[in-house]
Design a protein around this nucleic acid. Sequence first.
RNA 1: GUCCCCAUCGUCUAGUCAGGCCCAGGACGCCGGCCUUUCAAGCCGGUAACGCGGGUUCAAAUCCCGCUGGGGACGCCA
Length: 554
Amino acid sequence: MHLCKPGIRVATVRRRGHNPPSFLPGATAPRRPLPPEPPMTVVRTRIAPSPTGDPHVGTAYVALFNYCFAKQHGGQFLLRIEDTDQVRSTRESEEAILRSLRWLGLSWDEGPDVGGPHGPYRQSERSAIYRAHADELLEKGHAFRCFCDAHRLDTVRKAQIAANQTPGYDGQCRSIPAAESAARAAAGETHVVRMNVPREGVCEIDDLLRGRVEIEWIQVDMQVLLKSDGLPTYHLANVVDDHLMGITHVLRGEEWISSAPKHLLLYKYFGWEAPQLCHMPLLRNPDKSKLSKRKNPTSIVYYERMGFLPEALLNYLGMMAWSMPDEREKFNLEEMVANFDLTRVSLGGPVFDQAKLSWLNGRWIRESLTPAQFGERVAQWALNQDYLARITPLVQGRVERLSDLGAMTSFFFQGLIEVNAADLTVKGLDADGVRRALQWSSWRMEEVTPFTRDVLDRTLRETAELLGLKVKDYLRVLFVAFTGRPVATPLFETMELLGRDLCRARLRHAQVLLGLMTSKEEKKWKGELDAAVTAKAEAAAQAQAAAAATPAEG
RNA sequence: GUCCCCAUCGUCUAGUCAGGCCCAGGACGCCGGCCUUUCAAGCCGGUAACGCGGGUUCAAAUCCCGCUGGGGACGCCA
């Protein structure tokens, strides 16, 4: 592959403002006006989502910037699936992520679904490549096998924290002679591969937005590259793939700055030229912390179910940390690409503001859609045969006139619903008891996979049991939370139809109404839930043992 | 605890690199008014910010230093 990147220097954009300017390595940082791009090398960027959950708006945000950057330079944008976490990665999640990104109007030139010359684009299908590269590092002495078990690592870490030291691997296995290390591995002893990291000196990172960032090597841990399951960690896979796939610019979340030294070191170890790094500010919750689903809806699917237009959501994401040169707020993808300029990225972490998103969405609805198109969108959204056909069976036995349908099913066509706090009660529980019950429900609901009638049925019945409540009494409050009324269509079917995202949002809405848990309560309640689960499991085990013993004696 | 990043209205931001045009502009939200059969929308007006302290300079939101504040990272997760 002819993927070396001779002198790629696409717009080494320095951020405007406070950074000392001219001492960048090689002093190549051009000042405005930016120089024309060296034409010989094509810009290639990528988004590399990990399929371990719901499609996250943060993923779309980073994807959008990578897309715009690549397209603006006439380059390519790739999608790669980072599914090296065998435990948490699922194919459903991967599919949902691709679907959501496409729904938003993003497309990629290469990816697991569209193919391309640098595939496979799913890391789980590239294990041999990583293994070979890990071996290469082992041979060159840039990495070593580590035979420490989780228990020892944990002990070391705790001791370090207790001693107010920076936690990190203590280097124990680094001194194992190569022959012994190889022999133990050959004998089948489980181990990981860790990278060697200098214990002195400073790593210099050139960030397209921040200029030079320095991190002392002593701050960098001897990162695991190959896990004991033989699969790579992000750090190895990401570097190997970015190189092999000819990625020239990596735009990613700010959270990665601190591991950039590891990546840069790996490029050096392999003798490769590193891509330009660019760390985007993180999307934030209203309290300024990193956007998280605990505090804010983060799933793209949620926004879809709430009735946001994909072009509006994408537009909104585009105005996070970035602005059009003429400050116009409504723009489409094409316009963003045409005007894109890294120089216009501001570094303060933008708060994802539901209110402003709604306003923007409203503008798109009334300014960019003809009445006919609007009708089509509405139909596409929920007033479609598929959705209707799943709802009508639930109400047929409950209506007397067709016109009863509207009032009876309104909550299927709403986003958040109006709930009367006075209806959020559970027989036998005081206010805090209800709050706790709802929180337990929230936790249990996250474990429901797939989000279907049967699994919901099983899980929620069990939750009632854990709470020591009659199923009927417990479910009533959920009816209220999800539908706004104590009596409605069958709960589990309704939840399935509403979907995980809307259910999560409505439950949370109800919780907010009663007062969200404090962090103290969170800790306490979580402990109580775990204890209840454990107790139930033990009781079940005992019962089983007893059942097994009885016939044997008799 | 250690390291790193960041800092303009409550929020998104323009202005910061090339200091004066900025007693800081736009937008969301909120408040008030107009329009209107209602409500939205639209239009008009109002509210509200350069975190603090030192420098440099004739001049600092803009440059430098310190402080404070916020955020992130420190996993066989990504």
